[in-house]
């Protein structure tokens, strides 16, 4: 893969913080990442895994201790005079903010559009994020989910080539999350590269082309959601009730096992079930392996 079609390229990224009481803490401990242009890439991990630190380095908010970083062909920590032009091409949706409380949705989006060289139509963006009805509402009257959609509107108003979303749906109700996912997939269809962090597995599964599982500042695995942790090749668990107790067997060929059971039992096999590991089980086992 040539680096020409990579939107983000990270090699050996390290960042540590020095706290007064806690001493030195390594937040990001040697991360390699590459995000292809036009894909949705999810950084999945528990709180404190290093997701936000990584993304904020990519967004140009933080410096790093070592490693190479390239976002749209630029080093975010060494932009010099290219800063404004580079920021014109990226969109950022931060974790919760409380700014612009006294302005209306329309005023905020129209104002931010002026910062960019080739912005989208503000009213269309407001409609896209589903805030048309709240157009003239003050920002401080919006619900958490609406507020978040406004954040997304501000992230995409400049027609970004890459959009960073940091835990975009934390605190959403299920319906709002579905609507939000549709919006993200629509942006992908427009060709926007999207890098999102999340600690929701279903979100990564619904949206991401590829997922990187991160914990304790290290990438544990990068793959598609369907193949994460060897999920597609994982053994199935066949279980049933026999001789007064629950019995189960792990197998690559569950159909054969069920056939054997059918031969052994006359009629219904008691409490028969065939399951494969859920993404959540895979994830827990991946995260668990690196704990302690």
């Amino acid at each position: 893969m040539s680096s020409a079609n990579l939107a983000v390229e990270v090699k050996g990224l390290v960042k540590s913080y020095t706290g007064k009481k806690t001493g030195k803490k390594v937040a990001v401990d040697g991360i390699d990442l590459s995000v292809k242009s036009g894909e949705i890439f999810a950084l999945l991990g528990p709180n404190g895994a290093g997701k936000t630190t990584t993304v904020e380095i990519l967004e140009g908010y933080r410096d790093r201790d070592s490693g190479q970083v390239s976002v749209l062909g630029q080093d975010p920590n060494n932009l010099g005079i290219h800063g404004s032009a580079w920021r014109n091409r990226i969109g950022i949706v931060l974790q919760s903010t409380k700014d612009s409380e006294d302005l209306s949705v329309k005023e905020v989006v129209h104002h931010f559009a002026k910062y960019y060289q080739n912005p989208k139509d503000p009213d269309l963006v407001i409609a896209d994020v589903g805030l048309s009805e709240k157009m003239n509402a003050r920002v401080n009257t919006l619900s958490g989910g609406q507020r978040r959609r406004l954040d997304v509107a501000l992230g995409i108003i400049g027609r970004p080539e890459i959009l960073f979303l940091d835990e975009p749906t934390t605190g959403f109700d299920p319906e709002a999350r579905r609507a939000f996912w549709e919006l993200i997939l629509k942006l992908k269809a427009e060709g926007v590269t999207i890098l999102l962090t999340t600690h929701y597995l279903d979100e990564a599964e619904a949206l991401a082309d590829r997922v990187a599982v991160i914990n304790n500042g290290k990438i544990i695995e990068v793959s598609t959601p369907q193949t994460l942790g060897g999920r597609n090749n994982a053994k199935a668990l066949v279980s049933w009730f026999e001789n007064g107790k629950k019995t189960s067997i792990q197998t690559d060929n569950p159909t054969d096992e069920v056939k054997k059971l059918t031969a052994r039992f006359t009629g219904e096999i008691p409490e028969l079930s065939v399951t494969r590991p859920t993404l959540e089980e895979i994830y827990i086992s991946l995260i668990g392996e690196t704990h302690e």
Binding site: E59, Y61, I92, L94, D99, S100, E101, Y116
Partner: peptide, 17 residues
């Protein structure tokens, strides 16, 4: 207050000088 509320951080992420 604007620093706390994220106003500055949001502006920093845009092309504004």
């Amino acid at each position: 207050i604007e620093r706390d509320f994220g106003t500055l951080k949001r502006l920093r992420g845009t092309p504004i000088s």
